[in-house]
Design a protein around this nucleic acid. Structure first.
Length: 876
RNA sequence: AGGCCCUUAGCUCAGCUGGUUAGAGCGCCACCUUGACACGGUGGAGGUCAGCGGUUCGAGUCCGCUAGGGCCUACCA
């Protein structure tokens, strides 16, 4: 049952229709067959309110390629999709929406606000899912999960309680990274460092009772208002006599002690004197505890100065306070100097606000006991990180890991399952206790903090499968096989999934991690809205279709960053178009459908047919091999080269004389049609994971065996199809054709001019081959005649091609400048190569040490080159 | 400061365990509307493989060093 393909390739005409068909038929879901090997993978859940960007397009294309490949290869395949509630990000978005309406979330209160976020989620949460579908993602949507689903939330509470009971979660007061804009604590990995040009200020602190002063240096003069000491190195001869004395803190006019601190102070650095602000600097916080210096909080949660900063400063923004402090220091003669200084500043990655180190009470995960097994599991190869170079980064981070701050002062997220009674006793439990187990108080209130989004993400590979229950899905599909994600969330997500997976399931949550690079623009810059170099995948899909986008992403995905430009996508959309047209050509000439194509009599194959099947087989082998190694670039490039430059450029052209009835008999023609169909069929299946839509559309119209190409078997290499003889002979034919075309152009002939070609075979079998396929040379090289083993007339163009002597006889002797120059260059090249081979072979240690095959190869090459040189010289 | 990576044709990149003549895409030049495709076809130009040194019969490929670029980690005022 064969239909026509439209003359024009128009992805809009079928992509959505095909996707709907797949979905309706239920092809994305695995079945219950436990005897088939399974393959499972979980999606890196995009933010529920997010919009598909090019990074999503990449990571999901790569996953879909692997998933479709495995599914077609016979695995019972699950790709489990879902979305993340994305704590801060989502709260910020909804907050901004409310602000537009003139509402503050504080007006609404926590409960109402969270309701609003849910409304927002219901409204926009499916948008990104729809966008993933447009990309062609074959995830099992019937299993769609959300991190705040009841099931996943239960897993979160379960893990929290268990870790608390095991002593791995604790509540305590510590200095944390605080975002004054979001007004929450964040973890170390959420802090990004930005290089910045600033000033380093030297400030003089007068020493009490003398006219001497100590000079301290700082980039943040406003924090001096919170100084509660000045530290010097206890062994520093310049200052050690001052330890125990006091300085007068300028502006604040407070008396603060001079202390000795060998850890905080490097006597070689700067002035060797350090101001100590225990409430607003991590090092000073530690020093304060060591040296018994009080903590004086001068900056509050919103980044404004507190009353402790003094009446002139209270209420001022921290950056305004900085200016004012500097003015006052200058006026008082305390500002010694201000020098340009380049340093890096920690900012909150989500909102770009400068981090304020802040002492507060938070919840933490004691991480070392979780980290050690996670190091081992990668070291012993149970989990393989690809590309391997990321392993070093992984180990480095794991080995220097700090406790994880998991509480967030937000409203949107998993509320920490800790409960306080009227007497402030803490109960950590899955469900709200009726009364305090310690004092019986029935006045119970839940912790207001929520958990870091990544806490729930860390459980994703198993919480999505119903864990902690032993569900059928969990039993069948956990652990997963591969995790494909961006390297930017190696610490945020991958590392934590490994830690939690090992701790709670006793198994590595996946056995391979493929980390893809970042999509950049062509000059290699990050894509950003401000730079205006963003490529919107949805625009691309509208313009050239999902297949072209997917293929372009795949062909650049080697694991490194991907330089992507519109022109590149355009380039590969030409390939999709080529496939379309090749299929169109095939369908014009094929009168059998795929069901008959299986009966090919291998013994009757002609050499060109053996050749294309051998080439296809080679491509098949390489594609499978490359996909196993996540070399998407190699895999897609292999198909590209094969399909375009072997199948289309050569095979179809070579098959035309027979297909169109110009050569051979009816049975040759029939066989040619079958082979054409066979090669097209296999190529489409090979291509399907990369270009699901166009391959399905063509396949359907060809009338394939299966109801859909996506469940047809993926081609695997068969040794029987390897054919080195056919490869060698067809390579010779191709090379001869190219040479004739080339010489024709150089001698100034037009494509219409036809010549005679003389070929000498090395034996009867080869001579017969060239006689049989003379029509190909005549057709493709535009010849009048091919004479095998005849004597070439003097003056004809002589050459040695793939070991065969050939001569081209021209109707007249034409010698052009181009041709003379070209011949001269060829002769030079040949001579150089002869010399190089001669010297190698003259070298005894080469002949002795090199593998015999290499030596033999050099000898054969040398002989051929000498022959060729001789022939070429006759062309001058 | 430590770690990882990169430097190959005008641009963006491949080159697997070292082995003949270093490849691709895009771009460029010339010619061609040949019954699938001008999102096409044919032919062509273009590279001291960053530099230096070493190992080897042989190095783009392995090992050092140098220069330039990128990324990650890090509490130096």
């Amino acid at each position: 049952m064969k239909e026509e393909l439209d003359k024009r390739y128009d992805p809009k005409a079928f992509e959505q229709r095909i996707y709907a068909m797949w979905e309706e038929k239920g092809y994305f879901a695995p079945d219950d067959d436990r005897d088939r090997p399974k393959f499972s993978i979980v999606i890196p859940p995009p933010n529920v309110t997010g919009r598909l960007h090019i990074g999503h397009a990449l990571v999901n294309t790569l996953q879909d390629i692997i998933v479709r490949w495995k599914r077609m290869s016979g695995f019972n395949t699950l790709w489990l999709p879902g979305t993340d509630h994305a704590g801060i990000a989502t709260q910020m978005i909804v907050d901004r929406e409310l602000t537009k309406q003139g509402i503050s979330r504080f007006d609404l209160g926590r409960e109402k606000f969270v309701e609003k976020v849910w409304e927002y989620k219901e409204k926009f949460g499916s948008e990104i899912i729809e966008q993933l579908k447009r990309l062609g993602a074959s995830a099992d949507w019937s299993r769609l999960r959300f991190t705040l689903d009841e099931g996943l939330s239960r897993a979160v509470r379960y893990v929290f309680v268990k870790l608390y009971e095991d002593g791995l979660i604790y509540r305590g007061i510590a200095m944390v990274n605080w975002c004054p804009n979001c007004q929450t604590a964040i973890s170390d990995v959420e802090v990004e460092y930005r290089e910045r040009d600033a000033k380093l200020y030297h400030i003089d602190y007068p020493i009490e009772g003398t006219d001497r002063k100590l000079t301290v240096a700082t980039t943040r003069p406003e924090t001096m208002l919170g100084d509660t000491g000045v530290a010097v190195h206890p062994d520093d001869d310049r200052y050690k006599s001052l330890i125990g004395k006091f300085v007068m803190l300028p502006i604040a006019n407070r008396r603060i002690p001079i202390v000795g601190d060998a850890i905080l102070v490097d006597p070689e650095f700067g002035t060797g004197v350090v101001k100590v602000t225990p409430a607003h600097d991590k090092n000073d916080y530690e020093a304060g505890k060591r040296d018994n210096l009080p903590q004086l909080q001068v900056i509050d949660e919103t980044g404004h100065m507190t009353n402790e900063a003094g009446p002139e400063f209270a209420g001022l923004d921290r950056f305004d306070a900085r200016k004012k402090v500097l003015e006052k220091l200058e006026a008082g003669g305390f500002l010694n100097s201000a020098k340009p200084y380049h340093h890096s500043v920690g900012v909150h990655g989500k909102c770009d606000t400068d981090i304020e180190p802040m002492i507060s009470r938070q919840w933490f995960v004691k991480i070392e006991p979780l980290a050690q097994p996670s190091i081992d599991i990668v070291k012993n190869g149970t989990i393989q990180i690809i590309p391997e170079s990321w392993q070093a980064t992984y180990f480095n981070w794991m080995e220097n890991i700090h406790d994880w701050t998991i509480s967030r002062q937000l409203w949107w997220g998993h509320r920490i399952p800790a409960f306080y009674c009227a007497n402030d006793h803490v109960t950590v439990a899955m469900e709200t206790p009726a009364k305090c187990p310690q004092c019986g108080s029935a006045e119970i209130r839940q912790e207001t903090d929520v958990l870091d989004t990544w806490f729930s993400s860390a459980l994703w590979p198993f919480s999505t499968m119903g864990w902690p229950d032993e569900t059928p899905d969990f039993q069948m599909f956990y652990p997963t096989d591969v995790l494909i994600t961006g390297f930017d969330i190696l610490f945020f997500w991958v590392a934590r999934m490994i830690m939690m997976g090992l701790r709670f399931t006793g198994k590595a949550p996946f056995s391979q991690v493929f980390l893809n690079g970042l999509v950049r623009d062509e000059p290699g810059d990050k894509m950003s809205k401000t730079k205006g170099n963003v490529i919107d995948p949805l625009d691309v899909i509208d313009e050239v279709g999902a297949d072209a986008l997917r293929f372009t992403l795949a062909i650049f995905a080697s694991g490194r960053d991907i330089p992507l430009g519109k022109s590149r996508i355009q380039g590969y959309s030409a390939f999709v178009n080529k496939i379309w047209n090749a299929a169109r050509f095939a369908m014009m000439h094929i009168d059998t459908d795929l069901k008959d194509a299986a009966q090919i009599d291998r013994d009757k194959l002609r050499v060109i047919e053996r050749w294309i099947l051998s080439r296809l087989n080679d491509a098949t082998k390489n594609v499978n091999k490359s996909l196993s190694a996540f070399r998407f670039d190699e895999a897609s490039n292999t198909i590209y080269q094969f399909f375009w430059h072997e199948f289309c450029d050569w095979y179809i052209e070579m098959a035309k004389p027979v297909l169109l009835g110009r050569h051979g008999d009816a049975s040759d023609q029939k066989q040619a049609k079958r082979i054409l169909l066979e090669v097209l069929d296999r190529s489409l299946r090979l291509l399907h994971p990369f270009m699901p839509f166009v391959t399905e559309e063509i396949w359907q119209k060809l009338g394939g065996h299966e109801p859909s190409i996506m469940i047809a078997p993926y081609p695997i290499a068969e040794e029987i199809l390897e054919d080195s003889e056919a490869e060698r002979l067809i390579a010779a034919i191709k090379s001869m054709i190219t040479t004739v075309r080339n010489v024709r152009a150089e001698r100034g002939f037009t494509p219409k001019d036809r010549f005679k070609l003389y070929i000498r075979g090395n034996d009867t079998r080869e001579a017969n081959f060239f006689r049989t396929y003379a029509y190909l040379l005549i057709d493709l090289a535009r010849l009048t005649e091919v004479i095998v083993d005849g004597e070439a007339p003097a003056g004809s163009h002589q050459d040695v091609i793939e070991g065969f002597h050939v001569a081209i006889e021209f109707p007249e002797r034409v010698v052009t400048k181009e041709q003379i120059e070209r011949t001269q260059r060829e002769i030079e090249k040949t001579r150089t190569e002869i010399a190089s081979n001669e010297s190698r072979l003259a070298n005894e240690s080469f002949v002795q040490n090199a593998p015999p095959a290499i030596v033999a190869g050099a000898r054969a090459r040398l002989a051929e080159l000498r022959e060729r040189l001789e022939k070429l010289q006759q062309n001058q």
